[in-house]
């Protein structure tokens, strides 16, 4: 079907038919000869069936569960939205969300800033061996999170590399078991997040920088812009789409972070590193607060959805 035909079909008024069936029939009648029609449903059906059964249905069930107080064994009692109001009033539930927001500084903000700084320095020249650097920098993204967690448990162990490094530069006084420290466990887990995500940001921004027209830099230089002005006037605005992509990916990864917490700290010490994703598992499968856990899961889904929409708006805002 040519573009013109399609255009013409779209503008054709639909007033001819009033009944729903008639409207459907006219929709089909307008197809070009040979264009498939209802057979489209047959192609979608198998995927839709699996998708509905194992994603849509559980999602709505989760919402339903979240309205009850249920220990997973005895009959549940209806509590309405109490599980949701508790997210705001109960400190033991508010805590994990606060931790998640703090972790986002490490998971999203820090990697993006590092990535931008590096992109700013590297955008000034062509880099040889880029494939090698890109492969290595992106590597943390493909490693199983449980392997990453294991490696960093050892690094942060009392006799691990981190403390050894501190001692080597004369900071032996501040060494400690980082993941077991009430104050520093959360930032320590955050550092792991930074390690996982910074390569992704660098790769994104470097690719973006290659696409910035050289003339923009030359124009900026003719105007007498230094490296800093050049960064804010050219690099930063031109990288906006890549920054939006990096922000979405890193924020969603930060909010979904279950494996890392489970393996490194188990939410501890105390509940110093407990995050929503971990609380869902912990409450539903370890302490029998199924309804409350479902509410956390739904809140997390809403949070992720909102972030995705807001950030994609940022991309559209540019176009």
């Amino acid at each position: 079907m040519t573009q013109a035909v399609r255009e013409a079909q779209r503008s054709e008024p639909v007033v001819r038919s009033r009944s729903r069936l008639g409207r459907l029939r006219s929709l089909y009648a307008r197809r070009a000869p040979g264009e498939p029609r209802a057979v489209g449903y047959l192609y979608v059906l198998p995927a839709l069936a699996v998708f509905s059964l194992f994603i849509l249905v559980p999602f709505f069930q989760s919402i339903w569960y979240s309205l009850f107080n249920w220990d997973g064994l005895t009959p549940a009692t209806w509590v309405g939205l109490d599980n949701y109001t508790a997210l705001f009033t109960d400190p033991s539930l508010r805590g994990p969300f606060v931790h998640a927001l703090i972790l986002l500084l490490f998971y999203a903000l820090l990697p993006i800033v590092i990535g931008l700084l590096i992109a700013a320095t590297l955008s000034r020249m062509r880099i040889r061996g880029m494939t090698f650097f890109r492969t290595v920098l992106f590597l943390p993204q493909v490693l199983a999170m449980v392997v990453v967690a294991l490696a960093w448990r050892w690094i942060f162990a009392p006799d691990g590399l981190f403390n050894a490094g501190l001692s080597a530069v004369g900071l032996g006084g501040i060494t400690r078991p980082w993941l077991g420290d009430f104050t520093f466990a959360l930032p320590a887990v955050g550092i792991v997040g930074t390690w996982v995500e910074f390569g992704l940001c660098m790769v994104l921004f470097l690719a973006g920088c290659q696409r910035i027209p050289r003339e923009l830099y030359e124009a900026a230089r003719l105007d007498g812009a230094g490296a800093v002005r050049e960064f804010f006037a050219v690099t930063l605005p031109e990288l906006r789409p890549q920054i939006a992509v990096a922000a979405t990916l890193t924020i969603v990864a930060g909010l979904r972070n279950f494996d890392l917490i489970y393996v490194t700290t188990g939410g501890g010490p105390g509940d110093a590193t407990s995050v929503p994703a971990y609380e869902v598992y912990h409450r539903a499968f370890e302490v029998g607060q199924v309804g409350g856990a479902a509410a956390i899961g739904i809140a997390l889904a809403i949070l992720i959805f909102v972030v995705t929409v807001v950030v994609s708006r940022l991309i559209e805002g540019r176009r």
Partner: peptide, 21 residues
Amino acid sequence: YVFLIGLTLPEEALVIPLYYD
């Protein structure tokens, strides 16, 4: 769009009913 929304749903929002089902 229904499929797209499925892309943003975290596992944590599904895993509890999945287990009981």
